[in-house]
């Protein structure tokens, strides 16, 4: 049984965590692509920025002596997400809207988003330094261990409190997004605009409003994802820059512009990464008893070495782009 628990801890839980973060990021990327037709490269840094906003709020609360039964990083999320949404609107107004107004091509906007990436990174490091911070200096990070001895296992399934929040909040965010996209006038207008921009204009849809709503959603989801990532590991200035490509991989796997595809793509890439570096020999060890004498399983049976974990996402990205650039869920709605 220990093998199974090892698998649950290493693959199922890790994959779900990673997948949640990728999914939340990829939804933002895919919405922006659907509405504004460009690959928003600065999305990773909007996540980092969102995490820093949360961190500042937590530091304020700690300074005021506030304590709560839930992690403070989760408590401040609504406010942090609102601030991040405003920042996202500001970035659009300051850097992308003028280029759009001039009728620039998508590639120009992509380059501009790289410029924004650099500015955010520079600013964060300028003010926060390059060091690593933790949300859990003032409070403890609870770890839940589920005793599995009743199944004859000696190991526990272990999951931390932020990880539970992360999976739960991702589910909530996805459900809310679904309700928004299929049940509200603005959500439907958003899908309509992603479907056919010219017809949306002709129908009298307020496209400027839809663009603003897109940034609000993308910005707040980026803040959510970034804060969760920082709660799970630590907060550092290059927190999300390194995962912006896996996020793009998730969005492209799901088909750029398709929100549900992006969520599925996020989990797909997340699980692919954890499965690829998972050492199968740990699970298959019982087979050693069955194998003929003199035979034994190699110590390491991982598909790719651990140092190539992120590379798995890049390979998925490139292969999907080459083989099926419209994503693997062709035909799925929005």
């Amino acid at each position: 049984m220990n093998e199974l628990i090892f698998f649950i801890n290493k693959v199922l839980i890790s994959g779900a965590i990673l997948g949640s973060i990728y999914a939340l990021g990829a939804v933002g990327v895919t919405l922006i692509f659907g509405i504004l037709r460009f690959a928003h490269f600065a999305h990773g840094d909007m996540m980092t920025l969102g995490a820093f906003v949360s961190y500042i709020l937590v530091t304020l609360l700690v300074a005021m002596g506030v304590t709560a039964p839930i992690p403070l990083g989760i408590l401040v999320l609504p406010v942090a997400m609102a601030i991040a949404a405003v920042i996202a609107l500001g970035i659009d107004k300051g850097f992308y809207a003028p280029l759009r107004a001039r009728g620039s091509k998508p590639v120009v906007l992509l380059i501009a988003s790289i410029g924004v990436t650099l500015m955010i990174q520079g600013l964060i490091r300028l003010f926060a330094g390059v060091g690593t911070r933790s949300f859990f200096d003032a409070e403890a990070k609870d770890i839940f261990r589920i005793d599995m001895s009743w199944l004859g296992a000696t190991r526990d399934i272990s999951i931390t409190e932020p990880q539970i929040w992360m999976i739960g909040l991702t589910v909530v965010a996805v459900i809310l997004l679904h309700i928004f996209l299929t049940g509200t006038r603005l959500g439907k207008a958003m899908r309509a605009m992603a479907d056919n921009m010219d017809l949306a204009l002709v129908s009298g849809i307020n496209t400027a409003l839809v663009v603003r709503v897109t940034w609000v959603i993308a910005g707040s989801l980026a803040c959510l994802a970034g804060t969760m990532l920082a709660l799970d590991v630590t907060l550092k200035p290059d927190l999300a820059f390194n995962i912006v490509l896996p996020i793009f991989a998730a969005a492209i796997v799901g088909g750029l512009g398709q929100s549900y595809g992006a969520i599925a793509g996020g989990y797909l890439v997340g699980f692919a990464e954890t499965l690829a570096v998972f050492n199968w020999s740990a699970v298959l060890r019982p087979l050693n008893d069955v194998l003929p004498a003199g035979w034994s399983l190699p110590q390491n049976l991982a598909l790719v070495p651990t140092e190539y974990k992120l590379t798995v996402a890049f390979v998925i990205l490139v292969v999907v782009l080459l083989v099926r650039p419209t994503g693997i869920f062709r035909g799925a709605s929005t």
Binding site: L99, S104, G115, M119
Partner: peptide, 20 residues
């Protein structure tokens, strides 16, 4: 270490200004 990061910001600012 902070001053080293200034150049990243400057680079980003230069490119966005140039594009505009």
């Amino acid at each position: 270490s902070r001053a080293l990061q200034m150049r990243v910001f400057v680079l980003g600012a230069v490119i966005t200004i140039a594009l505009r």
